[in-house]
Nucleic acid binder design. Sequence first.
DNA 1: CGTGTTATTGACCAACATCAAACTTAGTGG
DNA 2: CCACTAAGTTTGATGTTGGTCAATAACACG
Lengths: 242, 242
Amino acid sequence: MTHPQPLLRLLRKLQATSELSEREVQAVCTLPINIRSYPANADLLRQGDQPTQCCLLVEGYLCQFKIIGSGRRQITQLHLPGDVPDLQSLHLPRIDQYMASIGPVVVGFIPHTALHKLALEHPGLTGCLWRETLLDAAILREWIVNLGARDAQGRIAHLLCEQALRFERIGGGGRKGFPLYFNQSQMAEIVGSSVVHVNRMLQRLRVEQLIAYGEPEHNKNLRILNWEGLEEAGDFHEDYLH
Amino acid sequence: MTHPQPLLRLLRKLQATSELSEREVQAVCTLPINIRSYPANADLLRQGDQPTQCCLLVEGYLCQFKIIGSGRRQITQLHLPGDVPDLQSLHLPRIDQYMASIGPVVVGFIPHTALHKLALEHPGLTGCLWRETLLDAAILREWIVNLGARDAQGRIAHLLCEQALRFERIGGGGRKGFPLYFNQSQMAEIVGSSVVHVNRMLQRLRVEQLIAYGEPEHNKNLRILNWEGLEEAGDFHEDYLH
DNA sequence: CGTGTTATTGACCAACATCAAACTTAGTGG
DNA sequence: CCACTAAGTTTGATGTTGGTCAATAACACG
């Protein structure tokens, strides 16, 4: 009821990169979908799961991560509304990482069978969905560069730039700022460093007048005070977001 | 002439994960392909390129990398014979990283048009190729974990385990060892640390009797003396390789 | 107004980078 | 076959980044 047409989110995303025919639009909008809500920090998928459906994020935020032997968590992907985080499960049956909510979420499950049928009947849509997984991969590559080649401050600046532009696409944020939906401890699990250090680097970005955060009057959004400066600090180039 | 049927490499790879019909096998084997050789350290693709063909690696080794503002290089992917490193260009026209040879290579170029036609006429093969890009993405995710959560020794051990198993699949190596086709400076660009430190960590792995390398009598292959030990040192779990 | 979570601070220490040099190996041309 | 060169590997010394531990402060929520 609060989500009259969750599939519109998916449709809009696909249309962002390709023209869809009337027939294809119809096919997407009539996909069977099963809406569900989860509280914060709920595991939606675990390593080894073999789901028979894909998950469309409708409201809220999801992350995917792995846990290594030492118990340390590394977040590998972040997802905003409209994403299908586990689209890969269509062709790789066994899940190799956790998927969990950050804050409360609303998701819609779409059966694999329906998606396979869609792909078979609409080859154009197959390419569209394939492209979505390739866009994810482009972000993964950039994260590798971020973790491997930049220092902590640069990693954080880069992450903030990326999130800003991803919000710009779906609305709700942009180069001026966006809702900071993860906390500093989660940010540390993204950029591969310690909470303490993340905190210090954020403060540095703040002293350098690049960002502002934690302001009750701005509803705790992260504000970007100097976009070009933040880009430079994070050596950020948006081309990888295609 | 020295490569009577380069497409067989691709075929064998696709068949490793899915049954192909006689018709599909025929379709793959009759793909148009244009063989070319390159010397060591040749750039096959640069950021911003918009290729009209995909590249099948027939002989030798390729890597993909990005260069950041400071001039530092970060290798994002490694490719062995049989891989199609730029399969993504089928749906993401603009290349966002460099692709270069490590040592001399032989590659075969397959036009996008032919691959699109193949996908249209053989939906099963579309899924097959899609899966290949998803397998790459699974490795990317694990590299993120490697860079973000493990220390230098662990990162190197993990990398060696991964390469061993990738060689095991295509032949030419395995859990006992494999050809060490990258040097320590390139290894540093993979694991995101300095050459000096890579060197010291390799020595540590050697003292711990996990590996041996640089032995002329073994043709400079990397030898793995203790597979379980190396797995443990790198916190390696092969499931992500599917 | 407690109580648990998150943010912040300081002190100390380990991992790793950087620099510079020596050494080893492989390849090249005479 | 040897001298020469370039590339790669190894070593030592030194400095910096960022981790860990522990305590305090600021919020958020019931």
